[in-house]
Amino acid sequence: MTTSVVKLDHVSYYYDGTAALRDVSIDIKQGDFVAIVGENGSGKSTLIRTILGLLSPQAGTVELFGRPQGQFKDKSRISYVSQKAASFNSGFPVTVEEVVAMGRYGRLGLFKRLNMEDKAAIQNALETVNMWQYRNRKIGSLSGGQQQRVFIARAIVNQPDLLILDEPTVGVDQKHLRDFYEVLHLLREQTSCTFILVTHDLNVVTDLVTKVVHLDRGRMACNCGLKEYSELGELAAIKPYPVKVLVHEGMS
C-alpha cells in the first residue's frame, strides 16, 4: 500500500469566525502530484499553511508521513516555496549561495558549520536549476525568473520527500514561466518527491498532475483525477478551470 504523505481529516479553519476551510479531507500519497485550484479567497493558501503547521486547525486533524502534525519533527523532509518568495526585500545583502544554504540550516545544529556534504548539496541544487554560475551574485540583482529558480534550489537542497509550491509563479513573466515549468518537469523526472502545487493554470502541468483538489469558499468541491476534473463542467455546480487533458500512461 502506498504511504500517506499528507492526510487531512475533516479539517476546518476560521479567521475571526469566518470559515476559510470547512470540513476538508484529503489523503495525498507518496509520489502524487496534487494541483490545488480555486478562486482567490477559496482557502488554498490557508490549506497550505495548515499542512505546513503555520496554522492550527480549529477542527479536524493533520497527519504528515503517518504522524500527527504536532509530533512530526523531521521538518527537513518538507520544503516550501511560497507565493511571497519573490517579493522578498531585494536590497537584502545575501548571495544566491547563501540563500540556498538557508535550506540546510534547519537540519544543522548549533555551532555546526556547513560541511562538504552540505556544500555539495548546495552545488547540486543550484546546478539542477541551472543557477550555479550565479552563486556569488546578490539575489536582488537577478531577474524574477532567476530568483524563483534560486528559491526552488533552496527548496530542493535537502532532497525533500514533499515539495509544496504555493503559486510560485506570481509576478514571473511569460518567458521565465516557461523556464520555471521546465525545472518542475525536470524535478518530477529526477526525484520521487511528492508535489503539492497551488496554481491558477492547470494546462501547463497537465502531464504532471495526478490529482486535482478544487476549493470553493473553503469547501472541497472536487478531489479527483485530472480527467474526471475536466469533465466536471457538465456534471457539477463548480466551474472547473479550463484544462486540456493529455492522456499519459499511468495517469489517473
Binding site: L52, K73, M102, Y105, F111, R154
Partner: peptide
C-alpha cells in the same frame, strides 16, 4: 556566533525559517 545561521534565515525569510523548524 552561535545563532548566526538561524538569525540570518529568520531575517531573510521568517515564514520559511518557521517551516524549516527553527
Amino acid at each position: 556566533v552561535v545563532f548566526y545561521k538561524q538569525l540570518l534565515f529568520l531575517s531573510f525569510d521568517e515564514e520559511q525559517a518557521k517551516v524549516s523548524g527553527l
